[in-house]
Nucleic acid binder design. Structure first.
Lengths: 148, 148
DNA sequence: TGCCAGTTGTTGCGATTGCAACTACATAGT
DNA sequence: ACTATGTAGTTGCAATCGCAACAACTGGCA
């Protein structure tokens, strides 16, 4: 590893950082403008809504969301405070807890999606054709796969 | 705008978010492991090192870094506290201030780059060939250009 | 000159994040 | 059963972020 970085690599990297930051900022702004909670809340309710029985172990959600555990812990505190999720003890493991989505949580997910989708379209998808999108996904997939 | 989102668009978007988060986490970890400050500090010293006279107005740096102004204000406080940059009054505009890089700041930039470059190579560039990098940059550029 | 809207940068304060330490339980080895 | 090691999740505390309000100044205009 650590072979020399090409200028093209540095350019692409710098561009990736900038574009990503700008996109995230724009999407968060759209959500906020619609009176909705931040993106990370959507990630939670989406993952839970998709999961069997609408619930996941803390650690599984953590893995899917690439979120530090202490961070998730407190995020769930807040969302539970709003009645969007609930903690449920795990029968087989007294240490653990399921995070279960509530009806209100599902409603929030359905309510956020249209706004989020419009935002993705506006800031991202609209500017790329189908071929680009597939290519982009393919390239990014190469980065996911690699451990290093 | 807001034409229907294709599945390919959603996939690419989701992948982009995940990959970016993972990359950033990895790079920040590499910097920390090398006993270096976070990436945003590098961005500052790099921008300043490149700028004519090694200084920029607060607002210009803010624009380049896509950072909220209050955020930059305090980041510069911290970096000035470490002697990496210094605030210099602007003769023509008594409201404003230049942020000027110091010798120590330049040394930090030179010290961080090898570690950062290795990290970019390892987590990013290594996994893509030249064609991919150019294509990626081209696609991301389409997103930058568009205002919406 | 004198006023007023706009720009530049800072700050108080509450919310969020990051780190390290911690409690509680599980699992393996003896 | 008993100890040691590992895993799951939480929490205290300090650092950072985000918002809204602010002070200081500029530039245009009457």
């Amino acid at each position: 590893m650590a072979r020399k970085l090409s200028p093209a690599a540095v350019d692409a990297w710098a561009r990736l950082l900038r574009v990503e930051r700008k996109l995230l900022e724009a999407v968060e702004a759209d959500l906020k403008a619609a009176g909705l909670p931040p993106l990370v809340w959507y990630d939670v309710v989406l993952e839970l809504a998709r999961a069997p029985d609408g619930r996941l172990r803390h650690r599984d959600l953590q893995t899917r969301m690439l979120l530090a555990k202490y961070n998730l812990s407190r995020l769930i505190d807040r969302m539970a405070g709003d009645g969007l999720v609930a903690r449920v003890p795990v029968a087989e493991d007294a240490r653990g807890a399921y995070i279960a989505i509530t009806e209100a949580g599902r409603r929030l997910q359905r309510r956020m999606w249209p706004v989020y989708a419009r935002s993705i379209a506006r800031h991202f998808a609209q500017h790329l054709d189908h071929h680009d999108l597939v290519e982009l996904d393919r390239m990014l997939a190469k980065l996911t796969a690699a451990g290093g």
